[in-house]
């Protein structure tokens, strides 16, 4: 069976991007007041990255359809409730949640507003402008923005769950396609998409917090230095969530593997999905939980990516149905 690569890429990019947004939302909800300025920068970057990933996933779908100009027909037909319509709805909701989160982070997070003021340009002058802007906008933001960020964060988490689940549900919901007819698919797709997003979030967090600490941004560095234990606690909560998601990925992948007609693909599936993708991510998440470091997040991301990719490819490699019997 020929693998439908544009669809695999859509599910990886949109699912992973949504997962990233979900973890940004989680971090925003759990964040301590003192760490909010630099966390807002992380979340700003996470929201931008998420939007880029989800949009890139959407662009991949255009490679799948033969008549991209006709794509508006999907929008017109959205109320049909077809599994793909629902997946499209999840895609649109995720993009909207990403934009809302981005805007809310700018209002509610002083640093991000500062970043907007100073731009991302390097250099002392630009940096100072940024910090000044941050201070002003930060104070105003805390008053009206705190609630906005929280609402946007809840929306972001809901969108991540909806998107991740729908990337698998759209396959499960096809009643005539026996090999896809298991709830293990949406569960495995959701868990593995969130894993991708979570590890990506930890990497972004390390990158931006690390940069702040080495002096790129004085206010952020100061804020980070004031609350190291809370930051570590946040990373630990994310890491432990990732460990739970990795465990869920393993269980769902095993159930799916036992259900699907894997055939010649069995060894590759078992090795790459539950072992590398699931157990590999689990080990990386536990290591990151015990001793937070970006290298563990990177290790987890690579393992999760391998598992997530092979899991999605399996949809086509282990789905012959009765179609081979149709040949004359």
């Amino acid at each position: 069976m020929a693998v439908q690569w544009p669809i695999v890429l859509f599910k990886l990019l949109a699912g992973g991007g949504a997962g990233l947004l979900g973890f940004a939302g989680l971090a925003a909800l759990l964040s301590h007041e003192a760490s909010r300025p630099w966390l807002a920068r992380v979340n700003f970057a996470a929201a931008i990255t998420s939007l880029v990933l989800v949009a890139a996933g959407g662009a991949c779908v255009l490679l799948q359809v033969a008549k991209p100009a006709q794509i508006m027909a999907v929008v017109r037909n959205i109320s049909s409730g077809s599994p793909i319509s629902l997946e499209f709805l999840a895609f649109a909701v995720t993009l909207a949640a990403g934009v809302i989160f981005l805007l809310a982070s700018r209002v509610g997070g002083g640093e991000t507003a500062g970043e907007a003021g100073g731009g991302s340009a390097v250099g002392v002058a630009a940096g100072e402008t940024g910090v000044a802007g941050a201070a002003a906008a930060g104070e105003a933001g805390e008053v009206g923005g705190g609630m906005a960020v929280k609402i946007a964060a809840v929306l972001a988490i809901a969108a991540a769950l909806f998107m991740g689940f729908m990337t698998g549900y759209s396959h499960m919901a096809m009643p005539g396609t026996t090999a896809w007819h298991t709830p293990a698919i949406p569960v495995a797709f959701l868990a593995s998409a969130l894993l991708l997003g979570g590890f990506l979030y930890l990497l972004l967090l390390g990158l931006i917090r690390g940069r702040a600490a080495v002096g790129g941004d004085a206010a952020a560095a100061a804020a980070a230095a004031r609350t190291p234990s809370r930051d570590i606690a946040l990373v630990k909560i994310i890491a432990i969530s990732l460990a739970a998601l990795a465990a869920l990925t393993i269980i769902a992948a095993v159930v799916y593997g036992l259900f699907a007609p894997l055939g010649d693909f069995a060894i590759a599936f078992w090795l790459l999905v539950p072992v590398i993708g699931g157990a590999g991510s689990l080990v990386a998440a536990i290591l990151d939980w015990r001793r937070p470091a970006s290298s563990w997040a990177m290790l987890g991301l690579v393992a999760a990516l391998i598992g997530a990719c092979v899991l999605r490819v399996t949809l086509w490699l282990a789905n012959t149905g009765i179609s081979p019997l149709l040949r004359g």
Partner: peptide, 26 residues
């Protein structure tokens, strides 16, 4: 006229090859 050629229905029809690689297919 409306069909985008997304091939979702190929996967949904149990009498068809989900990827379109097998011919004949319903």
């Amino acid at each position: 006229e409306t069909c985008t050629g997304c091939k979702t229905c190929l996967a949904a029809c149990p009498y068809s090859d989900p990827t379109g690689a097998v011919r004949p297919s319903v």
